[in-house]
């Protein structure tokens, strides 16, 4: 995911995060495919850059970012944890389900 300048954003790109105004109101939800009208509005609203997931094939890239971590990568990250601890087993199960994948900016 990249922070792209509004001038470099084209129709079909996908918003990586909710776009809010200064009062916290939702303008464009995350995962929205940008349309021509969005580009006009973004400029009118005074945005200079936006977090963008992908440039060409939003659907394909989205599914890549939503892939849960592999068992190997979890085992590697948790290598300093005692594998038999119930909490550790539960945590790996939760993370492995892909429920807590986040689009970190």
């Amino acid at each position: 995911m990249n922070q792209l300048r509004v001038n470099d954003i084209t129709v079909g790109m996908v918003c990586a995060a909710d776009i809010l105004n200064k009062n916290g109101q939702l303008l464009i939800p995350a995962n929205t495919s940008i349309e021509e009208k969005h580009l006009r509005l973004l400029k009118a609203w005074g945005f200079t850059e936006l977090p963008i997931i992908s440039s060409s094939e939003p659907a394909a890239n989205q599914s890549t970012t939503a892939t849960p971590p592999s068992t190997e990568s979890l085992e590697c990250r948790f290598r300093h944890n005692t594998p038999s601890l119930l909490a550790v087993i539960e945590m790996k199960k939760i993370l492995g389900s892909g429920k807590f994948l986040r689009g970190e900016m």
Binding site: C76, F78, R79, H80, N81, T82, L85, V88
Partner: peptide, 9 residues
């Protein structure tokens, strides 16, 4: 830190 720190049982 690159790894999840050990959970103290």
């Amino acid at each position: 830190e690159n790894f999840v720190p050990a959970l103290d049982e």
